[in-house]
Write a protein that binds this DNA or RNA. Structure first.
Length: 582
RNA sequence: GCCGUUGUAGCUCAGAUGGUAGAGCAUUUCCAUGGUAAGGAAAAGGUCUCGGGUUCAAUUCCCGACAACGGCUCCA
């Protein structure tokens, strides 16, 4: 079925949803009912005191299907604004739309289908019998502001899924189930990686030893890639005087999102929401010669933003998060080379963690809202042109996104697709000519003159928290061997094998393999079950045979049959995988 | 922040028109020395999220806070 036809079907179904709601709740006021990616929604203002629960959806759905089965034709007719207003007299939201559309000189049409009529620009099927009722499911109810503005009243939005066939609906529902199983919030608890505490507060993740190992493993690799390219580590405090952000321009635009601290002497401080302003002060504490450039500062450190409670979500959106941040201070002539170095790091890193094809997004400013940004139009346009050239030179396909730029400059963002096809922004490279201006960052050039430097911002994982939410879901917790907190689990057959297993533990650990041991007095079957649930890559049962020098039967994650290998072969194999970032 | 739903043991969930609660898994101990996805038994574990109110009595009803979930808005 072609997309346009599916759109018509979904939009027609939205009318039927409204019809069903009016039948069950006659005094309901109607918002709008467009199509969305996998179906449609309709916004309603229910009569005072009515709430619609998830269970009520089933009865609405039943009524909806009954109306659909009435084989009603969709009949449209043009109306004047006055006619439209009289027909929709008891629908305040429709009246608002009529007024607006009439003001814009648009033609108004009303579509009738059986018992229901609606102001609508069209795009329907001819008859409701064309709506595939068995591909339909009302699945969610949510709040949504009228016309998307938080200044407007909150309406109740009912989402429906609608596919051409039942099979497609079922397969989509299966996909949702699969996503649920992979949910990082669930896996984070099951794999004992992180937790939240009501005492500590919402959006403040606490990392267990295993989770910390995971973070550090990834961060160490990023650092290795950076170190090879001339980066140096720096360290900054997590708070700053207000003055720093007044100079950077952040205080003005983002003061609501800062955690603020007032000292006993009445001075205002803030928790840092980013690191660049601090890093400028390290660059700027001595005069720099062009010979000292580029200065490349890297630091993995936490930032804090006072996100609204309703926006928090697992690790994806938190109040305290860790950036693997880096800033390069360089001359204009060095920008491209530095950008490409970062690009190389990003490619190497994402390949190693199992994301193969990153999409590249050019995140540009939104010309319609230029007041959101720092700096002049000219600087922005030049920088954006430069980014386009670099993308072209790099020979990659990039898509452009208006309004996705940072406050101080445009970005090249990298988008990763996870294993069930969802796309996420991960790494980012940003060119910044505004903060060097504001902090007066210069070097002395060959002519002995002051020369303005350029800042390049480069986060590889971005926020480690958000990155891990994506990584956990991408691999469903079954991380590549080099990333896994525990790479090999030893399971002694009985208590008399514990000593021998401990010796093996030392041997494997010496070989650089993260090894665990399950010494519990339990059956071997139970130990295997638990280790498999922990998604540990290799499980080795240790009994008389193994300790007696016979080949091992290794249980490999994801494989049904065990693999036979000598101890030496096994150690070699795992070491190679760790070294090869597999 | 807004709309809606929810909050009972570490986890997953039962439960009572208002009379302080129960299971499985996990934990601890004992028995079993067990060979690749749950061996057996016992014990321990709860201010029923927190704070107010109504009541002889509140985990249960009411109000408020906090937190989680689904969205909206936001995301430097």
């Amino acid at each position: 079925m072609d997309q346009e036809r599916l759109e018509h079907i979904r939009h027609s179904a939205a009318h039927m949803l409204a019809a069903a709601v009016l039948e069950l709740y006659p005094r309901t006021k109607l918002g709008i009912g467009p199509t969305v990616e996998n179906g449609f929604y309709y916004d309603f203002l229910f009569p005072q005191g009515t709430t619609v629960s998830e269970e009520d959806l089933a009865s609405i759905e039943t009524v909806m299907k009954k109306i659909i089965s009435g084989h009603h034709d969709f009949v449209g007719r043009s109306v004047t604004a006055v006619e439209a207003e009289s027909e929709e007299a008891d629908q305040p939201f429709k009246l608002e739309l009529i007024k607006e559309f009439a003001g814009e000189g648009k033609n108004l049409t009303i579509y009738e289908s059986g018992p229901f009529k609606d102001l609508c620009r069209g795009g329907h099927v001819d008859n409701t019998s064309e709506i595939p009722a068995d591909g339909l499911k009302l699945h969610r109810v949510a709040g949504a502001y009228w016309r998307g503005s938080e200044k407007n009243p909150m309406l109740t939005r009912i989402y429906g899924l609608l596919f051409a066939t039942k099979e497609e609906l079922d397969s989509y529902l299966e996909k949702l189930e699969e996503a649920k199983k992979r949910d990082h919030r669930k896996l984070g608890a099951e794999l004992d990686l992180f937790t939240f505490s009501d005492l500590v507060g919402a959006g403040l993740a606490l990392w267990t030893p295993k989770g910390t190992l995971l973070r550090n493993t990834l961060d160490d690799f990023v650092w290795q890639l950076r170190k090879e390219r001339g980066y140096e580590k720096v360290t900054i405090p997590h708070i700053t005087k207000k003055d720093l952000y007044e100079t950077s321009g952040h205080w003005d635009k983002f003061k609501d999102d800062l955690f603020k601290i007032t000292t006993r002497e009445g001075h205002e401080f803030a928790m840092k929401p980013m690191n660049c302003p601090h890093h400028t002060q390290i660059f700027n504490h001595v005069s720099r010669s062009y010979r000292d450039l580029p200065q490349r500062y890297a630091e993995t450190t936490m930032c804090y933003r006072d996100e609204q409670t309703g926006e928090l979500h697992g690790l994806s959106r938190v109040r305290g998060f860790t950036q693997d941040d880096a800033h390069v201070f360089c001359r204009e002539s060095q920008v491209k080379e530095e950008m490409f170095k970062i690009w190389d790091i990003i490619e190497a890193f994402y390949k190693a963690v199992g994301f193969n094809d990153l999409r590249v997004r050019l995140s540009l400013h939104d010309p319609a809202q230029f007041e959101k940004y720092l700096g002049t139009k000219e600087v922005w346009e030049n920088t954006e042109k430069q980014l386009r050239e670099m993308v072209a030179e790099r020979g990659v396909e990039a898509f452009e996104a208006l309004g996705e730029a940072a406050m101080y400059g445009p970005k090249i963002d990298f988008m990763a697709k996870d294993s069930i096809g969802r796309e996420w922004q991960v790494a980012t490279i940003q060119i910044d000519r505004n903060q060097p201006e504001r902090f007066d960052l210069v070097c002395v050039n060959e002519q002995g003159e002051k020369e303005r430097v350029v800042m390049v911002h480069a986060a590889i994982m971005g926020s480690i928290e958000r990155f891990l939410s994506i990584l956990i879901e991408h691999h469903a917790g079954a991380f590549p061997v080099w990333v896994s907190p525990v790479q090999v689990l030893l399971a002694p057959v009985s208590s008399k094998h514990v000593g021998g297993a401990r010796a093996l533990l030392n041997e494997l650990t010496e070989a650089g393999i993260r090894t665990g041991i399950d010494e519990a007095d339990e059956t071997i079957g139970n130990k295997v079950r638990k280790a498999a649930g922990q998604k540990i890559p290799y499980i080795v049962v240790v009994g008389d045979k193994e300790l007696g020098g016979e080949p091992w039967m290794i249980r490999v994650r994801g494989q049904k049959d065990q693999v036979k290998m000598t101890k030496e072969e096994f150690i070699e194999k795992v070491r190679n995988e760790i070294a090869g970032k597999i």
